[in-house]
């Protein structure tokens, strides 16, 4: 009985803390389901559930999908999978953009950081310590600093390669759409490369600490039993290191999905069709300042993927966060 009493107060405290921490997210979701007349109420009302008599009655709640409808812009289309398609640019263009950037960059990061982390963890070579410290030191450069130079580098790379693309396109008589696709691909490739480089040091650190935790005896035994070192890596170490690689992938994915400045400065103003979803949502604030339900719906739509991803993989997430911070 007394044991239960002791547990009651901390549990209650934790429930209250969880409610406070989740309140901003919850309130955004509530706002996203309001209609315009309830959003624009002054004084404001959290729940649109008032009647003339009372402030809150459940049957009177007025929830609408207007905010989401304005983001999705569903249109009938017989050729599409369900007979309709979402034509809102956030759903049809910018979310896929972000998904491509995040998946492609995380893929490269995981492979390259995996190789580098393994190298740092398992080999003794000249300059090992120096390289590790330098990589760590480079993370001290503010992102904005890199972006000044990266912006100018992007301009030079475009200037170098776009004429070639155009020349080839002219000689092969590509359609205009194909040519645009090729030049856009160049910019996408630049973005993916930039994300890959930016998140590489942190990812190497995480992967290395996971490799460090795997006993070396295992590989040595495999080598004695007749594996080549490379086979030992693939067959013995890689499966054990899978959680480390997975966490590098997940953290990179979430970071790139959430990333704003790089995309905003490199393509946000010049190549609007290549914007990431974060830049697109930020841009909504300029376009319709009053329609908060639309803005809230957009925020919910970009928050949901990372929240779901995090809740599904939280164990991997937590161990990587702790490793990355303490060792890094």
């Amino acid at each position: 009985m007394s044991q239960r009493r002791i547990q009651f107060i901390p549990n209650l405290a934790m429930i209250i803390i969880c409610m406070i921490m989740l309140f901003p997210v919850f309130a955004t979701v509530v706002i996203s389901f309001k209609q315009q007349s309830d959003v624009a109420r002054n004084p404001p009302l959290l729940f649109p559930c008032d009647t003339l008599e009372t402030d809150f009655s459940l049957p009177a709640c007025r929830f609408f999908l207007e905010g989401y409808e304005r983001i999705f812009e569903f249109k009938d289309n017989a050729a599409a999978l369900f007979g309709w398609e979402a034509t809102g640019p956030i759903i049809s263009r910018y979310m896929p953009n972000s998904l491509v950037y995040a998946v492609a960059s995380s893929f490269f990061i995981t492979i390259f950081a995996g190789m580098a982390g393994f190298s740092f963890s398992r080999f003794v070579f000249k300059g090992r310590q120096f390289l590790q410290v330098s990589i760590l030191a480079l993370t001290g450069i503010p992102l904005l600093t890199n972006l000044i130079a990266l912006y100018q580098m992007t301009v030079s790379v475009r200037r170098l390669i776009v004429p070639t693309i155009e020349r080839v396109a002219a000689s092969q008589q590509f359609s205009e759409a194909t040519t645009k696709f090729l030049t856009d691909s160049l910019d996408r490739a630049i973005l993916i490369a930039v994300y890959t480089g930016l998140l590489m040091p942190f990812s190497i650190w995480i992967v290395k600490s996971f490799f460090d935790a795997i006993p070396r005896d295992l590989e040595e035994a495999a080598v004695i039993d007749g594996c080549t070192p490379f086979q030992a890596l693939l067959r013995v170490v890689a499966p054990l290191a899978a959680p480390g690689l997975l966490s590098a992938f997940l953290l990179s994915f979430v970071n790139i999905w959430n990333e704003f400045l790089t995309n905003y400065l490199l393509v946000g103003t010049t190549k609007q069709n290549l914007r990431s979803v974060m830049v697109a949502v930020y841009d909504l604030t300029g376009a319709n300042l009053i329609n908060y339900q639309v803005l809230a719906a957009a925020c919910v739509l970009v928050m949901v993927p990372v929240i779901v991803l995090f809740l599904l993989t939280r164990k991997v997430f937590f161990s990587a966060m702790v490793e990355g911070a303490v060792k890094g």
Partner: peptide, 18 residues
């Protein structure tokens, strides 16, 4: 811990907007 951790996985820009 999982519930409390949710704010951390959200984007800076979205947190600011909200």
């Amino acid at each position: 811990l999982a519930l409390v951790f949710i704010p951390w996985v959200l984007s800076d820009v979205i947190v600011g907007l909200v």
